[in-house]
């Protein structure tokens, strides 16, 4: 029982980070970046490549994050901005971000080949017994990092001018520009931050999955589910809660039903949650978890 909760929280914090990455870019631009999983993959591949050619792991990891940051900004400039400029409410972004994902994924497969490569171990090998269960240091690192990043995001959002500006841009982009905000810069920064979140998730999961160009598909999908379960489309932090729930459900299903159950059980959970609360469990529209906020008065 404790074992699957702990390992569920560990893997869930990875899903949560990717979910938050999706949610952060959605928050500012109102589009879902289908290339988000690929941004994570870019970090993993670049880090693995540099580490295997002899660079220190920390340097390789930094370079990997920088690369996914650049690719993330490119995804905004190439696949998102032209669509937003033409028509904010059409679904063209669905196609363009997916097209961007296809390009990145296959470019990686072209450069590094479709097979998995070694990823430098960061803290593997050490494990800590907790109660009757075991948590590897790698898992612990994932949980702590996710907690720090989630809390950090909330602190920045609520207590810094940039965070407040981000909220303002999310709520009313036109009014934000009318108080002097360059909304393009805000969006680019949001995409860069979301790329870093996805990249960090990649660094945390890399040692267990190895480096594979198709990593982005799987984890992008799980990140998306995390965001939807949590309701990250309204509050990015909710995607982290969604991720944790998803992780625990998946590991729990594996432990209690059968070893394949993690493939389908989370989806059942997702469907049930969306039937009850279409915008996610921790969203503002869910009466159960409604944060304090009064409906907008008509003006």
């Amino acid at each position: 029982m404790l074992q699957f909760v702990l390992s569920g929280v560990a893997i869930g914090s990875i899903y949560g980070l990717i979910g938050m990455a999706l949610a952060i870019s959605f928050y500012v631009t109102r589009i879902i970046n289908f290339a988000q999983g690929e941004l994570m993959m870019v970090t993993v591949m670049v880090t693995a490549e540099l580490a295997s050619s002899g660079y220190p792991v920390w340097l390789a990891a930094l370079a990997g994050l920088a690369c996914s940051c650049i690719v993330g900004i490119l995804s905004y400039v190439i696949a998102v901005r032209p669509i937003l400029l033409s028509n904010r409410f059409s679904f063209g972004w669905l196609v363009s971000t997916l097209g961007f994902a296809v390009i990145v994924e296959n470019a990686a497969a072209y450069i590094w080949g479709p097979t998995s490569q070694a990823f430098p171990p960061i803290l593997n090998g050490i494990s800590l017994p907790i109660g009757g269960a075991v948590l590897t240091a790698q898992q612990l690192l994932a949980i702590v990092t996710a907690a720090v990043l989630a809390a950090g995001f909330e602190i920045v959002r609520r207590y810094t001018l940039f965070g407040k500006l981000g909220m303002a841009t999310a709520a009313d982009p036109e009014m934000a520009s009318a108080i002097g905000a360059n909304t393009t810069i805000v969006a680019i920064v949001a995409f860069a931050i979301s790329a870093i979140y996805a990249g960090i998730a990649g660094l945390l999961i890399g040692p267990s999955t190895f480096a594979n160009p198709y990593l982005g598909d799987t984890f992008g999908t799980y990140g998306f589910i995390a965001m939807m379960i949590g309701g990250g489309t309204e509050r990015p932090i909710a995607a982290m809660f969604g991720g944790l729930l998803l992780g625990v459900c998946a590991e729990g299903a594996n432990a209690l039903i059968n070893s394949q159950a993690s493939d389908w059980f989370p989806f059942i959970v997702l469907v049930l949650i969306l039937i009850v609360s279409p915008k996610g469990l921790f969203s503002t529209s869910n009466p159960l978890f409604r944060p304090r906020r009064v409906a907008v008065t008509r003006g």
């Binding site: 190439i78 696949a79 032209p82 669509i83 033409s86 028509n87 059409s90 063209g92 196609v95 363009s96 997916l98 097209g99 961007f100 994902a101 296809v102 390009i103 994924e105 296959n106 470019a107 497969a109 072209y110």
Partner: peptide, 22 residues
């Protein structure tokens, strides 16, 4: 052509199509 390059071209074409020919 090489299947990966082919996919890359496909991705690029779909972006171009959607941005240039709405």
């Amino acid at each position: 052509i090489n299947p990966w390059l082919q996919e890359i071209v496909y991705g690029a074409l779909s972006i171009l199509a959607i941005t240039l020919l709405p």
